[in-house]
Design a protein around this nucleic acid. Structure first.
Lengths: 150, 150
DNA sequence: TGCAACTGGTCTCATTATAAGACCAGATTG
DNA sequence: CAATCTGGTCTTATAATGAGACCAGTTGCA
């Protein structure tokens, strides 16, 4: 049976997961944010099977997250770079990073850190409200789309 | 071959994906944010196979995202509720939602919306900086953990 | 120029994960 | 107490993944 898809879901979370919610896509995107651009760079850094990488890159290009361009070093090879849509994944990668940092490391266990241009660790993502106080899960609610009656 | 794992990665993004980056976990968490708590609720709402749901719930409980408690309606059944660690996934779910809303719907196509308590659609997640101007991908850089020399 | 190594793939195969649904014991309802 | 509901387990068929052989075109270098 084919893996269940959510491409037609009315919930944006489900559609997003359908597009980039597999085991590899967000790691490829993370590497792209880190400046990797060539097939071999991704393959070596992730230790991913080549066939998998080919399939994932192809899907990410189809989805408009990555774009294939000529390599900037003058060679005849191609590079994969983030599009606007790909750069918009930044908050997703950052939120995953911050949750992982907070909950998946033992005290003192080293991990990579996201820095600003001054070399300072960045703060937490926040969901602003009009009052100025950030919204938490307890302050929000999802309004579902009206289900078509029949 | 076993699916590649990232539980030991020094990158928090990879560890987070290892914990909750499969096809179903974040949808279960999304439903939990929406107030679903019982096995049957999740199973019906997601259309997930029961065996899958059993496995996913078990892993989420092991990871400390969900907790099994007695159902609040006085029956002998159990419920699955978000822990603190689970509630901390809120920014991840919101960032996925916002990216999906921005990029995966045709103009005018309906989707669910996240509202604050006043019934207003919430704003965008931001990564604050000292200057007050939110940080973008272009303003940040990952500092890797020093690789052990040998 | 000529050859070895590199690059970016494709293809095959063995293994694992997923989807679908039959089945089941205990709880609940009427 | 019989029927149904709940929360699972188990089996089976199919799809996805991981590992690596293989290959054509590109590049580096003697």
């Amino acid at each position: 049976m084919q893996r269940t898809g959510f491409a037609k879901a009315e919930c944006p979370v489900a559609r997003a997961l359908d597009a980039i919610g597999d085991w590899w896509s967000l790691l490829i995107v993370r590497d792209a944010f880190d400046g990797l651009r060539r097939f071999g760079d991704f393959q070596r850094n992730l230790g991913i099977a080549k066939g998998m990488l080919t399939a994932r890159l192809r899907k990410l290009v189809e989805t408009g997250v990555l774009e294939q361009v000529a390599a900037s070093d003058g060679s005849a090879y191609q590079a994969y770079v983030l599009t606007k849509r790909g750069h918009d994944l930044f908050p997703i990668v950052v939120s995953l990073r911050q949750w992982g940092e907070a909950h998946l490391y033992a005290r003192g266990e080293p991990h990579s850190v996201l820095l600003d241009q001054a070399g300072q660790a960045v703060g937490q993502l926040v969901l602003p409200s009009k009052s100025g106080k950030p919204l938490s899960w307890a302050d929000t609610k999802v309004r579902k789309v009206a289900t078509r009656r029949r």
